[in-house]
Design a protein around this nucleic acid. Structure first.
Lengths: 202, 202
DNA sequence: TCCCATACTGAACCGCAGTTCAGCATGGGA
DNA sequence: TCCCATGCTGAACTGCGGTTCAGTATGGGA
């Protein structure tokens, strides 16, 4: 395999690690799997990351960073506060096979015993809530929504969505996307005491 | 160690397996741990359960059965529908260290790749929802609540509580029990279009 | 009382998977 | 052009942990 710079290799391997985790699960990935998927020897993985545990934790941090950057682009994007709010929640909500969610559910169970990962996930969660809250606040100052405790509202919404994700991914019950969406809108409209129709079509 | 009947030993070992899973996590329990905790040789575990995987899955089924029997006793117990509803949700909600929840979060991540376990968890979930819905229906026929799609309501409530459990256990954020409770009452009151005060004190 | 089904064990086995290590090779800089 | 820092590898090592097995002991029933 061609020689690469350390940073390029690391990035490439991290990416491959994530797909491997998604496919096999945190508990089942072997360094050999990551190595093979990257077209590289197992020894190289250790050379770059020192230890398997390290590799996995770096991969999760990497996944966090990716999610947050997507989130930022949605939140900072164009459109009315209502539109951005829905876009953010829409992306957060489990969709289709919800492949993106499996990794977080996996991560939760690891975080139960891993303080470092617990902190990483907590941070991710906090940023999610803050981002959603910021959009709500935008809507409030624009006079679209009444004054609410936006952080509390965002917290409740994300909790609800976490629960839906579990339902969708673990129980394989796939509420049609349309229905899921209308449920979210319903809850959101109630929280913001606005007409669902206002949110439904930005 | 004294000799016991097969069924007694199995039950005892399953119980010990659960505490061990709670303490170390699904991924980390070793048969040796369970054996030691049970004061028994590792070989005996295999003798009774055939394989480690089998042991773990039987333990989870066992935990399900326990939870369901507790649930039944709450739902079939005395008290007004409102009181029983709150009691059920109160027990479901993550409390204190929420030790009971860790095992399910762990189980979720396993169920992502294990169809059998996925079905077990789905069944547990369904029974939960049905039980709560039944109590709601009781309230409806008693004229306490308006006519609602009780299963849908119960589904949304449990989703929300699942999300709260994640927050509480994974992120170690422990909203004071009182606050948690009032949040649940709030949501429930809205879903049933009744005054929160009606629910708060049966 | 004997006896046998069966609960139970110690010790060995074995394969897996992470890690180590001694060295190879490549490509950018002097 | 040489050279060396550094990316990279094959192969071996190691320890862990599930499983096997040959055999022990116990206690309930005939």
């Amino acid at each position: 395999m061609p020689r690469k710079t350390a940073t390029a290799r690391r990035a490439e391997v991290l990416e491959e690690t994530l797909t491997q985790i998604r496919a096999l699960g945190m508990a089942a990935v072997r360094v050999a799997d990551v190595a093979e998927a990257s077209g590289v020897s197992p020894a190289l993985i250790i050379y770059h990351f020192g230890t398997k545990e390290n590799l996995l934790s770096e991969a999760l941090v990497h996944a966090c960073a990716q999610d947050l950057s997507t989130l930022d682009s949605i939140v900072a994007g164009p459109g009315s506060p209502a539109a951005r709010l829905l876009a953010a929640l829409d992306w957060y909500a489990p969709s289709g096979p919800a492949r993106g969610w499996t990794i977080w559910i996996d991560a939760w169970s690891v975080a139960l015993r891993d303080n470092t990962l617990s902190r990483v996930l907590t941070d991710l969660q906090r940023r999610w809530i803050d981002a959603i809250a910021a959009v709500i606040d935008d809507g409030v100052t624009a006079g679209l929504f009444p004054l609410v405790d936006s952080v509390a509202v965002a917290g409740r919404l994300t909790s609800y969505l976490d629960g839906l994700a579990v339902r969708s991914v673990v129980h394989r019950s796939r509420p049609p996307r349309r229905e899921l969406r209308s449920g979210i809108i319903r809850q959101l409209a109630w929280e913001l005491s606005v007409d669902p129709a206002v949110l439904a079509d930005p």
